[in-house]
């Protein structure tokens, strides 16, 4: 087990290197640059700017410089947001994205698993069909449709109800207390709730029809006991392996949700940065996101091997 963990951790390093190299090559080999918008600038000034940011050097040298700084934990200066380093920008925006993402993920896991289990226990009933139809809608209706509709309903229609409107209505933008967070969290979590619910249902149904659950029932154990102690732990295992993709999904969704709800998170910086060719900012964000997803995948794989000894084939 220890050797397996070590090998997985060691393979992270080349993986990250390839990711950085690939993104670096893509971004830097593109036509145009971060100072294009200021077309009125004197060529000499642009040349000076390029020198300041080391853009005049050959690509491999730039890459070396970038890696060197990266080793010291420095993601470099932002090229569009002057006077800010990428570290500073991320330091200000990451907490917001993490806060939003973690809460959404938590909500998605709790609700998704509950819905899936309920549907599986009442398999082929009206409840099952209803829940699965709703969760299919969660997949079919994208978050960028759900979010405006939520704001319309909670932010405008409910607010107009005299008397209760001020309690029921929710703010539709900004980042302050929990009330501001409710709508973005729901909008971000919905697709993941839907996917997790479907996964849980499928896996629960499989487990419920397996031999050892039948054996547990045959021994006369109470149904409650069979489900909670025998079926549930096994049924939730695949959900753990979905955590990595779920996080990736939440990160992707946050790009849109932060845009719609005007949240100063990382996702918004990414789109802005990509459009304005803010090389260092885009690279920094990709690096942070990829590392997060890779680390979570690593933890999930190790945890999975620990929980389910059958998958430890690599040893």
């Amino acid at each position: 087990m220890f050797a397996y963990c070590l090998r997985r951790i060691l393979i992270l390093i080349p993986t990250l290197f390839i990711i950085i190299a690939l993104s670096f090559l893509l971004i830097y080999s593109a036509p145009g640059g971060p100072f294009d918008a200021e077309a009125a600038l004197d060529p000499q000034i642009i040349e000076n700017l390029r020198q300041t940011y080391n853009l005049d050097k050959p690509l491999h040298q730039q890459f070396g410089l970038y890696l060197g700084r990266l080793m010291q934990g420095d993601l470099g200066p932002s090229m569009i947001y002057r006077d800010f380093t990428v570290n500073e920008l991320l330091g200000a925006s990451l907490p917001i994205s993490i806060n939003l993402g973690l809460k959404s993920l938590l909500l998605a896991i709790l609700l998704g698993c509950s819905i899936g289990i309920a549907a599986a226990l009442k398999r082929n009933s009206k409840l099952d069909y209803g829940l699965m139809f709703v969760s299919m809608s969660g997949i079919a209706v994208p978050s960028f449709v759900v979010a405006p509709l939520l704001t319309l309903f909670f932010g405008i229609y409910l607010k107009e109800i005299p008397g209760v409107g001020s309690y029921l209505g929710l703010p539709v933008a900004g980042w302050g207390g929990l009330r501001n967070q409710i709508l973005p969290i729901i909008a971000l979590a919905l697709p993941q709730i839907a996917i997790i619910a479907r996964l849980t249902r499928a896996s629960m149904i499989e487990v419920l029809s397996s031999n050892y659950v039948r054996a547990a029932r045959m021994r006369g154990l109470p149904e409650r006991n069979v489900i909670l102690n025998h079926a549930l732990p096994a049924a939730l295992l695949p959900i753990i392996s979905y955590l990595g993709p779920a996080l990736a999904g939440v990160i992707t969704g946050s790009v849109i949700i932060e845009q719609i709800f005007d949240l100063p998170g990382v996702g918004r910086y990414f789109v802005q940065g990509a459009m304005n060719r803010d090389y260092t900012l885009v690279l920094g964000i990709i690096l942070v996101f990829s590392t997060t997803v890779l680390l979570l995948n690593l933890i999930v794989d190790i945890l999975y091997g620990y929980l389910d000894p059958r998958v430890r084939v690599d040893e």
Binding site: T15, I18, I19, S23, L26, I27, A30, G244, A248, I251, T252, V255, F270, V271, A274, M275, R277, V282, I285, I286, F289, S290, V293, L294, N297
Partner: peptide, 17 residues
């Protein structure tokens, strides 16, 4: 390796670039 990436970001870069 590619699987581990949030791929939408690569699409965004490809398109903006």
């Amino acid at each position: 390796i590619l699987y581990a990436l949030p791929l939408i970001f690569f699409i965004i870069i490809l398109v903006t670039v």
